[in-house]
Design a binder for these strands. Structure first.
Lengths: 248, 248
DNA sequence: TATAAAAATGAATGTTTTTGAAAGAAAATT
DNA sequence: AATTTTCTTTCAAAAACATTCATTTTTATA
């Protein structure tokens, strides 16, 4: 069973969204209606998708990544929306940093065709990145047991050697007063460095993190573009006085 | 089974990137379309690759979906035996290096209570190490697609910063004449460094690797203690003239 | 060393597969 | 019923393919 690259892309898209219209797949893969149709019939024959009038859905949840991407999250679609918006900022061929964490992983399906190089401290991202054939560099250092994030002094020294076009970083809390915060101070140090070592940093956090402040601060609102969703207009306006905010 | 240099190159390329287009292989090997095609048909006939329209992929018996330790190996118990013996050399509290690879992973269950610190370039080892609550440091650098081993220049520089009590390294071939060899030259560089940066290095390889020599050499027999099994007494004696050999 | 035979190579050839577009049929929507 | 959307079929162009052949390189033999 050997798939063309385009069929792989279709599956990647379906894994992300569960279903897709023909139009969406044409845009996503940059190919013609005919080709998509042919691929869909083929994939359908292989029982990997189910077709419906106008598109297709994933048939078998492909074990490995599915479990990675789903993670039984209530805020799943919110995360997906946020990361889709984030991906639109990435240009062809750039070098980007991906922070460890369950939110950031949702960026990966959106960067398959952008020919990016990914640098990350999140070991949990690696299988998915490899599957999408994305050039990947891992930051070395101590591995944190609970989250499989790389942290520690060795990781910090390595950061000095990299410079990114964009960095995408998760936050456990963000507020006007306290800025961006997270629970682990070692992780905070890395996040801080990632902001510093990138041309443009993006903090991604869903609405539940708004107003919270955790133990370790790693930046002020001004230090990065904030990507979030689900806030009230008043809250958005308040934040926009301090930094650029992208509403997903 | 005898391969031309170009066929070796093709295999090396595929091992690194997983798949390749004809164009890529033409550039990589500096040869004509015809030659590449001829090689691909040959390699396909030998069941080493799978061809698809426009290129080829490595024909690896699907290892991804197997559980980490099982991996459907005929030589499974042999590997286990070898690694069990290897583990007996590790003392409490030591710092050890674990090479990437399916053999070495079998060492992990044997070191749970030894309070060791593990340094590794094998991302595939991490989940198991975390599960056993073993202090783990990962080498940073480019991630190789097919094997999830960390390689490249960045990995090499990092090695200079570590010094191990023991290093456990896999080999795809070992022979009196050629010493220890492996297929990927980038991995070979790391293995060589690991030997150098450790007080004592161990090469582990099952009997099927005896007499084989692959593309890239990373050491002479004398450079490490050899752990293997299943050889004849004569073969053992021959090897023991050159280095210490542990018979599993 | 010289020569012939064998093997490997790269270009040229025609064939097959893949692709995107067009036209009409079928299905869904209004 | 009329209209829009989606589907299938068909066709020509493009890309990838196998085959052939002349040339070069390697190997074997005189």
């Amino acid at each position: 069973m050997n798939f063309t690259e385009r069929q792989q892309q279709i599956l990647a898209y379906l894994r992300q969204y569960g279903s897709a219209s023909l139009q969406q797949l044409m845009e996503f893969t940059n190919s013609s209606e005919s080709s998509i149709r042919r691929d869909l019939t083929e994939l359908d024959k292989q029982q990997l998708i189910d077709r419906f009038h106008g598109g297709a859905t994933l048939n078998q949840p492909l074990l490995s990544e599915k479990s990675l991407l789903e993670k039984s999250d209530e805020s799943l679609t919110e995360k997906q929306e946020i990361m889709k918006l984030a991906a639109q900022h990435i240009r062809y061929g750039e070098c980007i940093y991906l922070d460890a964490g369950s939110t950031i992983i949702h960026l990966i399906p959106h960067i398959v065709n952008k020919n990016v190089t990914v640098v990350t401290n999140g070991l949990m991202h690696v299988p998915l990145l490899m599957e999408q054939n994305i050039e990947t560099v891992i930051i070395g250092g101590k591995v944190k047991a609970k989250t499989q994030a790389v942290i520690g002094a060795k990781a910090i020294t390595q950061f000095q050697q990299y410079y990114f076009d964009r960095a995408f970083i998760g936050a456990n809390g963000f507020s006007e007063l306290q800025g961006y915060t997270t629970a682990d101070s070692e992780e905070a140090t890395l996040k801080q460095l990632a902001i510093k070592q990138s041309k443009q940093a993006y903090i991604v956090a869903d609405h539940s993190k708004f107003g919270l402040s955790q133990f370790a601060k790693f930046g002020d609102l001004e230090d990065a573009i904030l990507i979030t969703s689900g806030l009230t207009d008043a809250q958005y306006e308040q934040l926009e006085k301090r930094t650029e905010v992208l509403r997903a």
